[in-house]
Nucleic acid binder design. Sequence first.
RNA 1: GCCGGAGUGGCGAAAAGGCAAACGCUGCGGUCUUAAAAACCGCUGGGGGCAACCCCUUACGGGUUCGAGUCCCGUCUCCGGCACCA
Length: 988
Amino acid sequence: MLHERYDPTTIESKWQARWAADDLYRTAPADERPKYYVLDFYPYPSGEGLSVGHCRNYVPTDVVARYYRMKGYNVLHPMGWDAFGLPTENQAIKTKTNPSVLTRRYAANYKRQMNLIGASYDWSREITSSEPDYYHWTQWIFLRLYDHWYDPRVDQARPIAELEAELTAYGTSRLGLPLSERGVTAEGWQTANPLERQEILKRFRLAYRGEATVNWDPVDKTVLANEEVGPDGRAWRSGALVERRTLKQWFFRTTAYADRLDRDLDTVDWPGRIVTMQRNWIGASVGAEVSFKTVAGDELIVFTTRPDTLWGATFMVLSPEHPLVAKLTTPTQQATVEAYVAQASTNASAPVPVEEKEKTGVFTGSYAVNPVNGAEIPIWVADYVLMGYGTGAIMAVPAHDERDFAFALKFGLPIIPVIQRPDDAARSVVRRGTYAEDLPNQLRAAGYQFSEQDGDLVVDLTGAQAEAYAHLVQPALLNGWTEIAGSGWKFIFPDVIVAFDTVEADQQLAAQISTALQRNDLPTVMAYLTTIPAYRTLLYHDEIGVPINSGTINGLPGDEAISRTIDLLEAEGQGKARHNYKLRDWLISRQRYWGTPIPIIHRADGLEVMETDEQLPVTLPGVENYEPTATGESPLAQIDEWVKVTLSDGQHGRRETDTMGTFACSSWYFLRFVDPRNPHELARQEELAYWLPVDMYVGGAEHAVMHLLYARFWTKFLYDIGVVPFIEPFQSLRNQGLILAPPREVDGQIVIEKMSKSKNNVITPDEVVATHGADALRGYECFISDFEAAVPWSTDGVPGIRRWLDRVWRIVLNPEQDRAGEGAFTERQLQRVLHQTIMRVEHDIKEFKFNTMVAALMEFTNALYKAREAGLSKTPTWAEAIETLMRLIAPVAPHIAEELWARTQRSYSIHQQSWPKADPALAAEEEVEIVLQVNGKIRDKLVVPADADEAQLRDVALQSERVKGYVGDKTIRKLIVVPGKLVNIVVG
RNA sequence: GCCGGAGUGGCGAAAAGGCAAACGCUGCGGUCUUAAAAACCGCUGGGGGCAACCCCUUACGGGUUCGAGUCCCGUCUCCGGCACCA
């Protein structure tokens, strides 16, 4: 009987309609089955629709979802829309359309495309982050953050009311604040007025309105993102020089969770590079705060990771934005410092490629006292110190910090080594004409390594040899001097040996050298040493090592030196251990219309008031005009009827007009999917407890830091306040590789580019489905390459998959066609391939090896053709194999699987069938081909029983004629036998 | 500069330290056909040999091992991230 040909267009739309009508993929609520939550990064719907690149995400997750359903899991596989944000808002302004209308239109198109490729989402759970019933709960979480603070003593968020109680009783005395954070006493708190209390609490709330330095475009009168400022510091659109402005902005206190965000990365199954990127972003470092007193008596606190280098701190540097800059500047330096600070504020905003940038800075005129040795050291201002990290001030240790080293050299500041080089390497150049003729012989006799260059002797030695070396060389010095650099630092003159170990020695030596050389550009010893090429690599190092020139900690092992110094400082009240992070608080304010409104009201008296839970959601007003205002305020600020409110106590207030950036919406959407229509709470407890954490989360690596970090932060906070019972939201994470445009030839060169509308090289799923069908597209998305690898789309690849599906179609429906009854393929072989294929496909799905999964299915199909050729199509194994093939292809090719299932008179639906069970015993080989090697080279192959033991293998190997030919009468030195694999005979 | 990741046929790629190139694409040859398409069969890393076979080959240079695409050291190239974080 001849069947009609495989026609994907007809069968795909037919089954899609049937599945939708039957609600086939509707997920049941929590039940007794094991669950599997497989989630795609929810997309931002744009007017351009999906490309085949996006499908690289949605097809594999759909394979996984379908596989786990067949395995008997209760599977949650939802989809929703990240709908707020700038692109839609800008499009709305341009087309004078309400952004919610655009969002619905774009999302509907995405949904149509997802259905087109047969994605099995439970659309009853579809969510849209810009709908009030969703952002109601974004606002609710905002208010919880606002109303909580982080208590590091218990490593947990606590209600603000509890902080107020503590402040009333103890002030901040028990909170363990860093030295650089101003505390408050119980009395100070008790006598503070409400506004002052608001200011104090702001420093603890997990959502707070604080000052932020931002890029301000004075022509367009708006705040710009870093990406909108060019490398020359000019605004991308207006061309104006961007200024740094300090504006009030809303933040979430991510930094409070820095340690847990770092630590808990150990508990997740994520790609290593994502974990690394998050760790780098958080940037944890341990060290200490050190309190310096200026000569005038002000306290200046720095953060350092190397308290052991404190004795080598020869100057201090403040960020230009540091609050004490003005106070510490002396009258004579005032004009210089003010000019520098002003210039820094315009320059610093631009994300200039900092690398190789010449250091700049100015002296304030003031001095501070080094707490460990009493040395008075100058205080400078320089833009290489950032206000946003640590305390915005540093102690400069130029001998062991690359930036300080460059700065000190440029401005002639002293550089004194205080940490011994771990390799103890040292070098000494004895210059031509300064030494007695016999010195080379003496050095040789004493065993020193040296070379002669133009009459200069360059001697390599160690710090340990420095003393002996100095005494050997000194008598041979006729005039001038030599020096030892790197370790054992010394200057050797004919009459005296001077150690280079203090600022005083530095000054004296530098003066002496300058006089001798008649130069005035060598203010320090290091300035001189850098002029000698042979020393360059030895002058600076930043490794942990044994302290020298460091008073009481001299000679301690490096790690001990650090902890000892911290102990010392703590005992004297001059310092304190501290963990520090590069991570900054999360700036959430956007001065735009299309975002979640921030549920805070500003009272006329300046106090912030939370919107009550009952009044949520605070909805966006429907307005005609979304243009940003000339003042850079949100357009909402101009809508009086929305902004002006009367509070329950009759007071007047104004709504906050900033909205939240979209990362707020995406920080919790994965929770809403478990109970998406709940009007009473974010989601029911039992659904959260059952479904979460997400078992498999899949999306592009471009969200490696921001989204994933913020979502983790919110999860931990919600855990602290008892809303969710888990600490990490995404158990496993995978990143699909990018799909690039097909290669094309330009001027004889093959170029591969990203797909983009502007380059007109986007390939849509619509066009591929139209010509080859959705199942072929799905198969090719899986087969194209390793899941994580970036790869150009190849138009030639899809027909290959289509051919395979055609072969599946024919072998299932025409088992008897073309049978010749010839060929060597046994029923047992077919059975073995059948069970091996089940195991391979299952393994590959779990390992995200979708390319080899498809290859295994192709090989299985090829084996069926061989079996048919051999006349096996009437056997029971054949029937089992055909049915198994249909089940195995169901996840990757759901439409053809369903059609074949129906055409072979099986009951609807294949997607509700169970996954076939592999029998490892039936999958096992009875015979294996082993390799015989002589000296590692393959010389023969033979087939042996799979369970042949070592002795048997050795015997058959030695009987092989070919092996004998290579072994000859040589001695067998070694015999390696790997059962089931090979025998290697080592002769010689 | 620092931190990741990757370099394998003409192409996309496979390969728990154990037969390199599975699977697919392309190309070539063949079967079927009046012909073409489709389908099916064979070949398709390089070199040598009439052949049986032999030698070489996983970016490059070393090393460990009976045995290395896989592990270690160094170099080069490409991709991604960070950007003066004290």
